[in-house]
Write a protein that binds this DNA or RNA. Structure first.
Lengths: 350, 350
DNA sequence: ATAAGGATTGAAACCGATTTCAATTTTAAT
DNA sequence: ATTAAAATTGAAATCGGTTTCAATCCTTAT
């Protein structure tokens, strides 16, 4: 009942061996190139392989090799251009290193994330890269931390972000530096009334940015205005609402830092509806430098992480770990600002 | 040299069996639930499984089952929200059906696409879904068609689009109907000078739209203006340039149909730079209804395909085909218009 | 022509599950 | 208490590769 495919029988290494009049071992040797085979036999076997377009069963290979040359990737949501950019960068880098990747989306659900961790482990991927998602919850959720620790026991895990609850490898964006660059850019343009839009403080990367924001304000002798910081959920609608609140203040800021490009697009809409102009009346800057920066008007100044490089590093660490490299490594990604049309000099006081 | 992981030995069904004092067969039976096991033994085994957090090796399982419960998906580029939306819809639908998915991006390169087809076949996915990509080239590229035919011999392939060169299953968007809806919407608003922006005629879905566009113009007795049709490459920049050309015509159109939301965003920019307003001076409508429609100003009227439903159908066909269903099925997706702020009544002649 | 040495080769074991088949244990019926 | 029928169980084969190890085949030097 199960296997009633009408497909032609899939051909195996034994079929090739029989037709070539050699043993399966010999066919395997030409397949892997791990050992010498006499030239004429090699050619004969190769031609039969070509004739049938034979491809060795990756399951059997992985079972015997104990390596699948596959890296599992769990992303929060590839519909977010930040993750899709990073995923594609990983895929390309992996391919260069002779690995393929397999993607799963956690969609921000802890249960999905754990199920996917399990699944990838079962599939015997050589390493798992976890981008975003509910990693931050590990700090509070012990059962979850235990699960990750368990996975780490058999499969190396690389996480984008920091994590002390489990022996994972980390690649972290220097969020403080990112905020620092943003603040210096704005302050250099004369801004002193700077608002922060979007983000949840329980998310580490957001919290680090906030800390730096305060630190730099202090450095420049600027009094922090609590009303200028409005949390949100990283989407356009939330950026829109947060900005609405801010623009209704009697003492409006002259610059808005959005937690990501999505929130910034919402901010732009709110600003437009308040009949203000960017960057003449108010500057907007954001993080992630996704293609969204190019779609909205004006084009957004944003903080970039060099996704190609970022992906390359993730894959590098993952493959090294897969080959038994040391655990607990940590690498930093240095952000860079990409200046477009949404930031400009502070407007003159009237 | 190869296997110098310091990880603890991965535990197998035999380890569980030994500790439970039963045979591996019995452990397997509680794992799969395919056969009865005495209650007390079952519980003992289950508790040992839990104790070690044991997960059966999916490679070994797949090898013995001849089903991996995995569906391979090849997308043109998940960075495009059309594909990411469809991919996530597939992932969710697959999960409900007890399958997992594995994603590869062809990035519009024929060689990558073929390599990925090969790889997925080697990984013994139960079916392959190919979304977009160079499928259209199959019509002209015989070597490629031969490759696909070869894959089809062992693994069912589901394609988004039509294809007679290989025995694949098809899910196609009714592009003609989409264009029809768009045209009726615009004509209903009084527009008669309607331009078409972006797209390459060699791409079937684009060509079908163009055909319907002409057909409907004719139906309404509107003379086609060749200058109103400007091809492009589906990205913002291309939509921008095409629209620039159109807006420099002496006899400007009052509505622009963009081939997708990206092109539409470029069109909006061009229109803005020409000091025109949407939809007061000119209406803009596009295809795909991605989240981009929500980011730009004004929000875009666009044609939606109900991605959840679309993904569900793709997975349905893929899983049925995997279980030996008939080949060569074809399903149609009916598009729907989502009206937002970018389309309005034709401006009064001055 | 022959022995030593290296190059090729195949048989068999292994990777970790599932499943068939026959044997054994339970349970139910008489 | 017996026996037939039903429920459990384990041994062994299988899935399709890779690799070890011992055997066989060539070379080349003597």
């Amino acid at each position: 009942m199960e296997n009633e495919k009408t497909n032609s029988k899939t051909i195996t290494i034994y079929d090739i061996a029989r037709e070539a009049g050699v043993s399966a071992s010999t066919v395997s040797r030409v397949l892997t190139g791990n050992a010498a085979v006499r030239q004429d036999k090699k050619e004969r076997i190769q031609s039969i392989i070509n004739k049938y377009n034979f491809r060795p069963n990756a399951l059997a290979k992985g079972l015997s090799d104990t390596s699948t040359k596959t890296i599992g990737i769990i992303a929060a949501d590839v519909r977010n251009p930040y993750y899709s950019a990073l995923f594609v960068a990983c895929e390309v880098a992996a391919e260069k290193a002779g690995y393929s990747v397999s993607l799963a989306n956690s969609l921000g659900e802890k249960e999905r994330e754990q199920a996917q961790l399990d699944l990838l482990m079962q599939q015997r991927v050589d390493a798992i890269i976890q981008m975003g998602g509910r990693v931050d919850d590990l700090i509070t959720d012990d059962a979850y931390a235990e699960k990750v620790r368990n996975v780490c026991r058999t499969t190396p895990v690389v996480v984008t972000g920091k994590l002390d609850k489990a022996p994972v490898h980390s690649v972290v964006i220097d969020d403080a530096m990112g905020m620092s660059i943003v603040m210096e850019h704005l302050i250099g343009l004369g801004h002193r009334k700077i608002a922060l839009v979007g983000g949840e403080m329980r998310v580490n990367s957001t919290f680090l940015k906030y800390q730096k924001y305060r630190e730099i304000l202090a450095q420049h002798g600027i009094q922090e205005n609590g009303e200028y910081v409005v949390n949100g959920t990283y989407d356009p609608e939330s950026g829109y609402e947060a900005t609405n609140k801010i623009l209704e203040l009697s003492n409006r800021p002259t610059a808005i830092i959005a937690i990501n490009d999505f929130a910034a697009s919402g901010a732009l809409r709110s600003i437009r509806e308040h009949k203000l102009h960017v960057p003449k009346d108010i500057s907007v800057i954001s993080f992630d430098n996704t293609y969204i920066t190019d779609l909205v008007m004006p084009k957004l100044t944003s903080v970039d992480y060099n996704y190609d490089e970022y992906g390359k590093i993730l894959i590098e660490i993952a493959t090294q770990a897969a080959m038994g490299g040391e655990t607990d490594s940590i690498r930093m990604i240095k952000p860079q600002i990409v200046i477009r049309d949404s930031t400009g000099p502070v407007p003159k006081e009237k």
